[in-house]
Amino acid sequence: MQYTRLKKWALLRLRKRTGSPAIFDKSANLLKSSLFRTFILLFAVGLGLSWLIPQPARSQQPKDVELTLVSFAVTKAAYDRIIPGFTAKWKREHNQNVRFNQSYGGSGSQTRAVIDGLEADIVHLALAFDVNRIQQAGLIQPGWEREVPNGGIASKSVVALVTRPGNPKRIQNWSDLAKSGVKVITANPKTSGVARWNFLALWGSVTQNGGNEQAARNFVGQVYRNVPILPKDAREASDVFYKQNQGDVLLNYENEVLLAKQQGETEPFIIPQVNISIDNPVAVVDKNADKHGTRQVAQAFVQYLFSPEAQREFAKVGFRPVNTTVAAEYSRNFPRIGKLFTISQLGGWDGAQRRFFADGALFDQLQVAAR
């Protein structure tokens, strides 16, 4: 720095500090002194360096973050318990508030809503096929099932048969659903994930128990001829059965039946010993999470769903835990299944969709035949 510029800067600072022209003039005359010039130089350098010393950063509260969770209808009771646990944990660890927007409905309907623009950060759906549809729409990156534990499956259930008090139609197993005069309530496989699981459980009750595919087609066709109404999702199916008092037997998630029992419903139910493992996946919707800047929190929430704390909350409302420790803790709540098969044994979701649920596929054919 040139001396002349430094002197002018020092004089300006001195004028501001003295506030008096007379005092300033006397001080300025002293600049002729080499000793005072040295003083001014040191004074100026000191002031300059003081500007360079970093000041302590002010403690700032991180901005609140907002997540949108889109899930299938019957998970709401679990998330009413899980979300407060996560938000409290995140607040303790990150000093940041997390607010949740939540949407619940039939898995197929929820999937279409996300594809059509519902900006979910996280989806928890009834079946992997629905997550794959969102992936195909470019919103979720391929390999989502490898990003989290357990292949992305956060909750499990099986199909239950709920009867009226006293079980007047003497329903004991799958085969009884095809009897004449039995009215079966189940949701619509075109809009509901649980309904697809119900359909596949009916089909597998034959093919996974020694029967051939023609026998399975005949049996499933007869059951759907006994279905008077097709609600859009599991919750509506429950309302039709419990509140509107329609039907002799309700096909539903075991977890939904156990939750209804907790809420005072007394209808008896049967868990068939040939049954399908209902596997419900969760995933971060990558495109939306990146757009919203919520990826870190969204990923942490998905991981939290596999923790013992969250798995216990799933178990309390009737879901079969995927965490082995928690599953052991709650083993008395869930009867063992003699022959439990999976979607992979029925060709996987891509094959099942094409064969059974696509437009014009087997379900549509059976509906036409039942008219």
Rank of each mutant, 00 (worst) to 15 (best):
M1V: 11
K7S: 04
W9L: 14
A10K: 00
R13Y: 10
L14F: 08
L14W: 10
K16I: 04
R17M: 08
S20C: 13
P21A: 12
A22R: 14
L30Q: 13
L31F: 10
K32P: 00
S34W: 10
L35V: 14
I40A: 14
F43G: 09
F43S: 14
V45A: 15
G46H: 07
G46C: 10
L47G: 14
W51C: 11
P54K: 02
Q55S: 13
A57D: 05
S59R: 15
Q60R: 13
V65S: 14
E66K: 15
S71D: 02
F72T: 05
V74M: 15
V74A: 13
K76V: 09
R81A: 06
P84Y: 07
G85R: 13
W90P: 05
N95Y: 08
R99F: 10
R99N: 09
F100A: 00
Q102H: 00
G105C: 01
S107K: 08
S107N: 09
R112P: 00
A113I: 08
I122D: 03
V123C: 07
H124R: 00
F129R: 03
D130R: 01
G138H: 11
G138I: 10
P142I: 13
G143Y: 11
G143D: 07
E145V: 03
V148R: 09
G152M: 06
K156L: 10
K156W: 01
V159K: 09
V159Y: 05
V162R: 09
T163D: 10
R164L: 15
G166L: 08
I171D: 04
I171R: 03
Q172V: 06
L177M: 05
K179W: 02
K179H: 12
S180V: 06
G181F: 09
V184I: 07
P189W: 08
K190A: 14
F199M: 11
L200T: 00
S205E: 11
G211M: 12
E213N: 12
A216Y: 10
G221D: 11
V223L: 04
V223K: 04
V227L: 08
V227C: 01
K232E: 13
R235A: 07
R235F: 03
Y242G: 02
N245Q: 15
N245I: 03
V249H: 12
E254R: 11
N255H: 08
L258I: 06
L259P: 02
K261G: 03
K261T: 12
E267D: 13
I270T: 15
I270P: 11
H292D: 15
G293E: 03
T294K: 02
T294M: 03
T294S: 14
R295S: 13
R295A: 04
Q299C: 02
A300Y: 05
Q303K: 14
Q311K: 07
A315L: 09
F319R: 03
T325Q: 14
A327D: 08
N333C: 05
F334T: 04
F334V: 01
I337P: 04
K339V: 04
K339M: 03
K339S: 12
G347D: 08
W349Q: 07
D350I: 01
A352S: 12
Q365G: 01
Q367H: 06
Q367P: 01
A369W: 09
